[in-house]
């Protein structure tokens, strides 16, 4: 990972992804005269970019469809627009603009937003829980979900060279765990990260559930002598099918845990690879949000309530290795 000058942090502490995004966009704005930032009234952490490049900052107010359409118009003229907002609205209210205005002509628009999963305690209008299913089904779209705040900056930096659209999903983005010590892993869009080596099973996760999967692996090792591999599949599309195949061959058992509907997200992407490649597994469990509107509560409470919290992850690992 490229370390950045934005990082006055200590490894293992909490850092704000939103702050990293704001500072990275300012840095990228200096290097790229055609980088624009657009937002539908969710611009609090974009202040640095706004104040430095006011002629390349557009806040359209509460108009997600126009925001994405305007970004597409800018990209059509050779610019690199970044649309920043809340994902429940960008992924659904503006879905057709994302699909027809950005994906169809394959324009390099980045959509980066918060409130992926049951986070923020806003209730079901404010949780993006089907966004990964929607975005992974769009032609030309690259789809990522990121928990580690430093990774957000790195992915944004890498995305400057991309020719097509990119979706970056965050949780709340205010206080996120730094999962990887800078320099300890290679971040490459399209490649999963083996966050922890292990041979008894593979725990697949993305976004904030990566930290939870690592915690579960520690519990499994300490209390059950089970050696779990943890893969951070932060790119859901294109999916790293080779890594999935290797994990199937080397560990034989999968548990997928994600802050998304259990069907339509990463587990579905992985099961497609399993079927398409004819992989043989001895156990498979998917943990995620069931077909319910989830209600209020803190994120860890909601994960426990809906069966994809830390204990559920440990239990699923025990079940597939039994």
């Amino acid at each position: 990972m490229t370390s950045t000058d934005v990082t006055s942090f200590t490894f293992g502490e909490l850092l704000s992804s939103r702050t990293v995004i704001g500072q990275t966009l300012k840095e990228l704005g200096e290097a790229n005269d055609n980088l624009w930032v657009l937002t539908p009234d969710i611009g609090a952490t974009l202040v640095e970019f706004r104040d430095t490049f006011p002629d390349r900052f557009v806040d359209v107010g509460l108009s997600e469809q126009a925001c994405v359409g305007i970004a597409a118009g800018l990209a059509n003229e050779g610019n690199i627009p970044v649309v920043s907002g809340m994902l429940p609205f960008l992924s659904m209210r503006a879905l057709e603009q994302v699909r027809s205005d950005i994906c169809y002509p394959n324009l390099p628009v980045k959509i980066v937003g918060t409130h992926g999963g049951l986070v923020g305690n806003g209730g079901s209008t404010h949780y993006a829980v089907e966004d990964l299913g929607l975005m992974t089904s769009l032609v030309n779209m690259t789809v990522t979900s990121i928990g580690d705040p430093l990774m957000v900056g790195e992915v944004l930096r890498q995305s400057m060279n991309m020719t097509g659209p990119l979706y970056i999903r965050l949780a709340v983005g205010k206080k996120d765990k730094v999962v990887y010590e800078p320099g300890s892993v290679t971040i490459e869009i399209g490649k999963g990260i083996t966050a922890r080596e292990g041979s008894d099973l593979t725990l697949f996760a993305h976004g904030e559930t990566v930290s939870q999967a690592l915690e579960a692996a520690d519990v499994l090792a300490a209390e059950h002598s089970i050696n779990a591999r943890v893969v951070d599949m932060f790119t859901l599309k294109p999916i790293d099918a080779d890594l999935i195949q290797r994990c199937a061959e080397e560990t034989g058992r999968f548990v997928v845990v994600e802050d998304h509907l259990a069907y339509g997200g990463l587990a579905s992407q992985i099961s497609d690879v399993i079927v398409d490649r004819g992989l043989r597994l001895e156990g498979f469990q998917r943990l995620g949000i069931p077909q319910v509107f989830a209600g209020f509560g803190e994120d860890t409470e909601l994960r426990d309530k809906h069966g994809y919290g830390l204990q559920a992850t440990v239990d699923a690992a025990l079940a597939v290795t039994a």
Partner: peptide, 23 residues
């Protein structure tokens, strides 16, 4: 200039293109 078909998309696209020219 742009791919269209679904209605109501042209004015946002044109707005983005006009912003580019203005800036």
């Amino acid at each position: 200039e742009v791919s269209t078909g679904s209605l109501g998309h042209g004015l946002p696209l044109a707005t983005g293109m006009a912003l580019h020219a203005r800036r």
